[in-house]
Design a protein around this nucleic acid. Structure first.
Length: 293
DNA sequence: CCGCGGGCCTGAGAGC
DNA sequence: TGCTCTCAGGCCCGCG
């Protein structure tokens, strides 16, 4: 599921349930997700107040009163659900939307706010890890990450510098979290479409000889900002797994212009093209060859 | 260092 | 209905 807009949607949904509230009890209902849980995973969580809930790229970071940080990643199929205690029929019995499978509820946080927060992840590509806040900057999972696409430091000049001299395609560069952190296949396809740039174009064309940004880079940054902000506003995109923490679907998938629209008419004003799909670095790329150059 | 392909898991959907 | 095959929003790792 989760690219930046989905993770941000989840963060905003978890905030009222978790921030300023204590983890009264935590359960890990199996021994591993993508990686085994740390031996002291549960004891380091229980009794701790969540002092803040942040996001870095596609990671959620819960600051704990102890000085630890709980790092969470949704992988491909992870989702969180917040259930109010009064909805709980009996201990361990939660209300589920029809399509959800509780067999994949792997982690449960019982919060002093009266909310229960449940992490569900069928494919288990997600993970959770506790690290000391003082060790955050040395954390290998976060270390190589590039700028936040909606942050101040990400602009055309920054994009040009990190793409200059790159031998790879623009599509592959945008998926590389070292270039910009938080985009995935959907939003890269959509941002390229909105800026009329071909996914096959060389990443290095974002910069001129002096590594200054080209107009292409400026257009692309504008499109990235626009598509991410619109997607966050829509609660993210729900193709199969993504849910908001209320269990509701996101609805940005209805605004896709190219993703998952192979064979359909290009939506760009006046363009007579048809959306095509091909495989690039092992991932599907959707684009309009007629108006993306 | 860089770029690419494989692998980790399960489930949904297509085709037979 | 049910089997098999392909594919999926991410990311780490090892190879060349």
């Amino acid at each position: 599921m989760p690219e930046l807009p989905e993770v941000e949607t989840v963060r905003r949904g978890l905030q009222p349930a978790m921030e300023g509230s204590k983890i009264v009890r935590a359960e890990a209902r199996r021994k591993d997700l993508r990686f085994p849980f740390q031996k002291d995973f549960i004891p380091r969580l229980q009794g701790q107040t969540v002092t803040g809930l942040g996001r870095r790229a596609k990671y959620l970071l819960a600051d704990l009163g102890s000085g630890d940080v709980l790092l969470m990643h949704l992988g491909m199929s992870g989702s969180f659900r917040v259930v109010q205690d009064e909805e709980t029929k009996a201990p361990g019995q939660f209300h589920y939307p029809r399509s959800e499978n509780r067999a994949h509820d792997h982690v449960v946080f019982h919060m002093s706010s009266g909310s229960t927060v449940i992490f569900n992840d069928p494919r288990r590509f997600g993970y959770m890890k506790i690290i000391a806040r003082t060790a955050l900057e040395d954390e290998p999972l976060l270390k190589g990450l590039g700028p936040e696409p909606l942050g101040n430091e990400f602009d055309a000049a920054m994009l040009a510098r990190s793409c200059a001299g790159r031998k790879t395609s623009l599509k592959a560069a945008l998926l590389d979290q070292r270039v910009v952190a938080g985009l995935g296949n959907i939003y890269v396809c959509e941002a390229l479409f909105r800026s009329h740039l071909s996914p096959k174009r060389l990443a290095s064309t974002m910069a001129d000889k002096k590594k200054e940004p080209t107009d292409h880079a400026r257009r692309l940054v504008t499109s990235i900002h626009a598509v991410l902000n619109q997607a966050i506003k829509a609660g993210g995109s729900s193709l199969r797994d993504h849910r908001q923490t209320t269990g509701e679907l996101g609805y940005f998938q209805h605004s896709f212009q190219v993703y998952d629209r192979e064979g359909e008419q290009c939506q760009s004003g006046g363009c007579s093209g048809i959306v095509k799909r091909f495989t690039q670095n092992g991932r599907s790329t959707f684009w309009c060859p007629h108006c993306q150059k």
